[in-house]
Design a protein around this nucleic acid. Structure first.
Lengths: 274, 274
DNA sequence: AAATGTGAATGCGTTCACAGCA
DNA sequence: TGCTGTGAACGCATTCACATTT
């Protein structure tokens, strides 16, 4: 083993922390870039900077994978690329189906990052018969009637949902029933799945709202005093409404009531429930 | 990110945990759905189920905002919608620019969730002169030469980067220089920004890789021992094993479909660095 | 001398369980 | 009685700091 000294109890990979797993792709990307520049080794300090994390965290992360570095020297770039790829399961081919070929689905189909790391778009599926057969990003769209057949034939275990929210759950159910056990969900809905199925969600609107929260904070700080939001006369009038402009159920909302104890600012407590 | 230096309490010592902030949009979505169905109140249990979290977590989250519930009854839906919207800063209008109108940028421009909650697409910007003036999702694309002017005139503080990775950092720099302080990054790159600027990233490829990790684990478990990892012929050789792009693709690795691998202890030290 | 690998310390987030209130 | 609000316990993640190794 020329080094196998770090003989670990075999079961070492039993339990890589989730937070670490989430960073492995980041390290891998940075390492791939170094590899392309033919850089032979990196220190934890350098690699951490390239990946946008701090070096202690990176070393700790790598320690869960094993002892792949050399003290006094650093990490061998190619070796690490391979080890991380293997750990992530990227040394095998992952066929993926994308369901819902609207604007977003089409963009995903054409996204280079998809094809680049072991992921292969096995099929594009849409419920609209008008789409059937039409090539998107070079791949002909198939009708959702054939969803089960496609998944079974290709042995697809990863599905991407890019449908409208309203049908996401049923699409999800069909995917799962057909054998998919990992789902990447772009629809703004909470999906429920049986045990053993993983779901990760990507939600644009949520990301923006988180940014808005911090942005608002910044604005408040620099403005010194409050300044903040215009005090609404009745809180219920403030909703954007987007789809269905839901008539505000009215409800008493007569204003007046004393506010909840700790209004972050002297805002308008408006109404109290009940 | 917070930078360790807390300028000053400025506003009330409202320290809402980051994890809580990230869930507020989820609660808001569930509440909005209830509101549209004119449901007057919800218990933490019901709302938690709708949002896909557990009720203890939800109650704790809400406790950071204040005491907005009624014991023995639950939460007033409309009231909570307003309080959360306000906390997130959604009672004001947030103009957003999208830079990079390729497939993804165009999909984002047309995404309903964008417009729906106080976010307004103020401008679409692209470096390609051929795109200038062309309407995408009803909004004419503007040339990136005008980026600074657009941001300043509209008072844009949130920018979305949907450009190729290669130009993302420079776009980011220009956005920040022009006054943007929150960035949603879709380019697969680590962006560096000055203190006080928030960056959130959305990376498709990373999400898929995380799924692949877990998927691989599942396959390995159910398949029992199973074949070992194919030992890499020579990942280090003299040259980058898989330079160029796309690592594993290409021939080799046959292996149709899933089929597991992953020896739990597939150590395979094979070669060591140095 | 340089840089990894890792126990220990710290901090954050989640869950428990129950007091308190309508 | 029913359900919220929250202190306390717990567990995971990050950071520190240094012994260890090349």
């Amino acid at each position: 083993m020329a080094t196998g000294r770090t003989h670990r109890p075999a079961t070492r990979s039993r339990g890589i922390p989730e937070a670490t797993v989430a960073r492995l792709p980041l390290y891998l990307r940075a390492l791939t870039a170094l590899s392309e520049r033919s850089v032979p080794t990196v220190s934890s300090e350098e690699l951490a900077a390239a990946a946008g994390v701090n070096s202690a965290k990176l070393r700790k992360d790598f320690s869960y994978l094993g002892s792949y570095g050399t003290r006094g020297v650093g990490y061998d770039v190619e070796y690490l690329v391979y080890q991380i790829s293997r750990e992530l399961g990227l040394t095998q081919d992952w066929p993926v189906v994308i369901v819902g070929i609207g604007n977003l689905g089409a963009a995903l189909a054409g996204y280079g990052g998809f094809a680049s790391r072991g992921f292969r778009v096995a099929a594009l599926i849409d419920a609209d018969p008008a789409m059937t057969g039409k090539p998107v990003a070079g791949i002909p769209v198939q009708h959702s009637d054939d969803l089960e057949k496609i998944i079974e034939e290709d042995g697809v275990s990863i599905g991407v949902i890019a449908t409208p929210a309203g049908v996401a759950q049923q699409v999800c159910d069909r995917l799962v029933a057909a054998g998919v056990t990992s789902i990447l969900n772009f629809a703004p809905t909470v999906l429920s799945v049986p045990d053993g199925v993983d779901v990760r969600k990507v939600d644009l609107s949520i990301e923006l709202q988180i940014l808005a929260f911090h942005e608002q904070r910044k604005a408040g700080e620099e403005a010194g005093a409050d300044s903040g939001t215009a005090p609404p006369a009745a809180y219920q009038a403030g909703e954007p409404a987007a789809s269905g402009d839901s008539a505000p159920s009215g409800g008493g909302s007569a204003a007046g009531g004393k506010g909840g104890r700790k209004g972050p600012d002297g805002d308008v407590p408006a109404v109290m429930p009940a």
